[in-house]
Write a protein that binds this DNA or RNA. Structure first.
Lengths: 346, 346
DNA sequence: CTGAAAGCGCTTACAG
DNA sequence: CTGAAAGCGCTTACAG
């Protein structure tokens, strides 16, 4: 049961073959007769031998490790999303035999941070990286892809010139917004407003663009007073709704929030103003947050499958690392309306 | 700004020295004159050179990576603790120049899992590991320490024979329990019960032992009907309290819960029985969970500093890796009562 | 089908 | 103070 000092040479000696053959067995070369393979495998198992990664990597094999970079300025997202996201990436990677080196990036503009991220790639600690929380354009990511490193990014699109080594993943926010508006219109709403997300993020932009398009399709006018800035956080939704309620009595009958946290904030503000949801205002969210179902009122929202998105992104990054194909990959995940109690018929 | 194909040999050539000297500069050897050092450093910076870890490790240096093993059977703890914990470990390690390879262990008895964890150590992917969620005795951890690997474990104590390469960290649960009981006694309670945590975990045991000791010190008798089994989860607290309330009308006036989640569950059950906290029963928790302050009633509890514990544990593991000292380390973190609204004077 | 040998990019006694 | 050389544990053309 010893193993620590086991090396391929020892295995070779015991099995009565050369190191070359041991290596061939480990790397599943086809030109090894079953008999030899079995003999070697037995010794490997008997001695609980695992090859040293460093030696393998130095000899040109992948490290089988991915860097997961969570860009979270300051406030450690205390909600369960980060958790879920991490677990999802780890487990998908693990199924493909890959490990995850996790990094929290508080400030992506900080020189030390930037250089330490690049260091991981250059030192060959990781075969590729996955970025969550990136802005539409991140110089760091651009540099990395320009150098040829393989990177998967949630919430970005391909550059003007598509890069096979930059894999992007998004939800179909356009479709989500259209569903929200279709539903509200069906309920008879025509006075509809929106609380936006962070417009530095692609999803912030595409959601708003989706809103505009959908309003046009429904033949509704956008009232600029009802287009409120936000940031994807509860606090932002609260502030936005407060501003609206304090400014005017000419209110929309329904508000589409950039995500569920924003919706929670908006509802809190509405309640504090002595009004009710959906009686006085209908609210529709985006994400289908864990809490949304349990919230009061239970939140009508657009469900996205974060887990599926990460599974695809992780898998595609790994396949790209191993096969090195030159196809350009853009993952888009559909989303769908979940009707609950936060919208009423007009 | 190129770097990918940079190797120490290139740096040496450009700086006009040998690879040996470049290596000495990188590893901060003292016998390099400032002038030479500066010359070499300049080239290193100019070319954005980072040595290959694989080569360094193969030559005997540490990988500067720690494995973080989260033992979480099935239910991905959706509360924010895992999150906080991860971030805490990552940031502390990062300050010391170490990376974190995260692993979720769903079933620590599973052979494949066990062997993949050992593989990480044997392959030399990590210099050491940190385990969270371990039972009092874990064969896997015992094997690892027996092999000489450096491991930090939360919620375990040293074995009969102390191991310098097993660093254990705990909260002073004894002190916490004593504070809880002192407070309740001060309020005039004598009829005091307890909902236990998971007794397979050391903290489950030490908390209950602390309770017993403290009761003795306060000259109070333990009513076996008021000692309820639990599991550190909300659900467990709920079930325990329901059982108690349904079984008898001879109720305690106060309950100490193994942690705040358990307390939340217990309070939920009490409310469902049409009773109130603290009017009909006082409840005291343990942890000072993020929600405890905001809960209704705000929960009186014992605050523990998870972040401090992990900071010490991570630091000690890294120091042990680098210095290889033979001292036996047992970290104990103090805890303290936070009085809020869930207990009343009798 | 299989072994001997070169090579991966570092570090570190050793010798000077 | 510094260079030449051996060694770390693998993989993979190359030759047979």
């Amino acid at each position: 049961m010893k193993n620590s000092k086991m090396k391929s040479e020892e295995i070779a000696r015991i099995a009565g073959v050369s190191r070359s053959t041991v290596s061939r067995v480990i790397n599943n070369y086809s030109n090894v007769p079953a008999e030899t393979r079995d003999k070697v495998m037995k010794v490997i198992r008997d001695y609980n031998y695992f090859p040293s990664v460093s030696a393998q990597v130095l000899a040109g094999k992948p490290v089988r490790t991915l860097g997961l970079f969570l860009i979270e300025p300051g406030n450690v997202s205390s909600d369960s999303l980060t958790n879920m996201l991490l677990v999802s990436v780890i487990e998908n990677a693990s199924e493909l035999g890959y490990y995850i080196l996790t990094n929290i990036i508080r400030d992506i503009t900080n020189t030390d941070t930037v250089s330490s991220v690049k260091e991981m790639f250059i030192q060959n600690r990781i075969d590729g990286g996955i970025f969550i929380g990136a802005a539409i354009r991140e110089p760091l990511i651009d540099e990395l892809t320009a150098e040829g490193y393989i990177v998967g990014v949630f919430d970005q699109r391909q550059l003007e010139y598509s890069q096979p080594n930059r894999i992007v993943a998004n939800f179909n926010n356009d479709s989500g917004m259209k569903q929200s508006l279709a539903y509200l219109t069906g309920l008879g709403h025509t006075r509809i407003g929106v609380i936006n997300g962070d417009m530095k993020r692609l999803s912030g932009q595409t959601k708003y663009e989706g809103f505009q398009k959908a309003m046009r399709m429904c033949n509704l006018d956008i009232n600029p007073d009802w287009v409120l800035p936000g940031d994807f956080h509860e606090r932002g939704g609260y502030v936005a709704m407060n501003t609206l309620l304090n400014k005017t009595s000419d209110l929309p009958t329904a508000i589409i929030a950039a995500n569920d946290s924003v919706a929670f904030g908006a509802i809190r503000a509405i309640k504090e103003h002595g009004m009710n949801v959906p009686e006085d205002m209908s609210i529709i969210g985006f994400d289908d947050h864990l809490l949304s179902e349990k919230y009061h009122p239970a939140l009508t929202t657009i469900r996205i499958d974060f887990n599926e998105m990460l599974r695809k992104l992780t898998t595609d990054v790994i396949v790209k690392i191993e096969k090195g194909t030159t196809d350009v990959i853009e993952i888009t995940i559909e989303c769908s309306l979940i009707v609950r109690d936060s919208c009423r018929r007009i």
